[in-house]
Nucleic acid binder design. Structure first.
Lengths: 121, 121
DNA sequence: CTGGATCCAGCACGATACTG
DNA sequence: CAGTATCGTGCTGGATCCAG
């Protein structure tokens, strides 16, 4: 019970919610893609060959729900749907880029540490 | 095969590796805890009641392997183990704090968006 | 005190087929 | 073209027991 309460507290923590989102496998990729401008659903599918349509939709729904992405439907026979970042989403994208920047600057150290660790056992 | 190749490419991306780490449920909590100074294993267990010892160890091993955390054993009968952040780890901790800061500044907007989304259905 | 090994349940994800 | 529903499965993570 204590555990459950603790877990709830953790889940309610703002930082954790966002960290969770960013950690989500596809969120960062979608954010990155959308950071380059609005995209159609099909374009995202093609740009992210590793993501099943299910996951893509799921991810986009989540982002939409959080107000990070806007979904625009231009209903026609060949339905067209466009996704684009909201200002809020763009802002988060910016933060994400900082993390990515850190990663690129320090990945060498991490790799070195990994090699050392694996080598020494 | 294309998918697999793509997934490998994604996995190899520095940004993704770090994002994955930060997104890991316990990493952020451990980082936060260790950001307050070195901790003994038992202390971490008590500080993070939601984490099973298995996950804690697993998480710490990962961080250690990445050179973000140092594990110091003072072998005695009652073995004592201390974990503390490396400079690299502290650096990542700083980046994480930026994300957390963003989260705290914008969580209200996210919550509002969620309410609106859930309300309209 | 620390942490590895094992067993098992829950769920997250992918594939497929179907609606509009 | 865009999205949903269903089903099967592989992996993640928790509980427990055991060793140093």
């Amino acid at each position: 019970m204590t555990r459950e309460a603790y877990l709830n507290a953790v889940a309610a923590c703002p930082g954790h919610q966002i960290l969770d989102r960013l950690g989500d496998k596809w969120v960062s990729l979608v954010l990155k893609e959308l950071g380059g401008g609005p995209r159609r659903s099909g374009e995202l599918n093609r740009a992210l060959p590793g993501a099943s349509r299910k996951m893509l939709t799921q991810t986009l729904r989540g982002l939409e729900r959080d107000g990070l992405v806007v979904r625009t439907t231009t209903g026609g026979a060949p339905s067209k749907v466009e996704y684009r970042l909201t200002p809020l989403g763009a802002s988060l994208h910016g933060v994400m880029l900082e993390v990515v920047g850190w990663a690129e600057n320090h990945i060498a150290e991490v790799d070195a540490a990994r090699s050392a660790y694996d080598g020494n056992c």
